[in-house]
Amino acid sequence: MDPIYLAGVNDPATYINWGWLSISVPNLIVILIMIVLFALAILLPFPKGRDRS
């Protein structure tokens, strides 16, 4: 019944430090996913629908 856990999800996250800014890798991934989704949504061609007048 237990879901399959990927290794290490309950260990503390890794942090990336940049001067006084630091960010956890999971949060960084979420933010990157948003940016990538936005870029893909804009750049990928949308399927052509049939035109109607």
């Binding site: 309950n10 260990d11 503390p12 996250a13 630091s22 956890s24 999971p26 949060n27 979420v30």
Partner: peptide
């Protein structure tokens, strides 16, 4: 890593994403 000067409650216990939508609120505390 839940202290205010490390993005506080925007983070989550374990390797989970937290309340990333609070980033701007947490940002000022950094």
């Amino acid at each position: 890593h839940l202290q205010g000067n490390t993005w506080g409650m925007m983070n989550e216990t374990g390797s989970y994403p937290g309340q990333a939508w609070l980033w701007l609120y947490s940002f000022w505390y950094q």
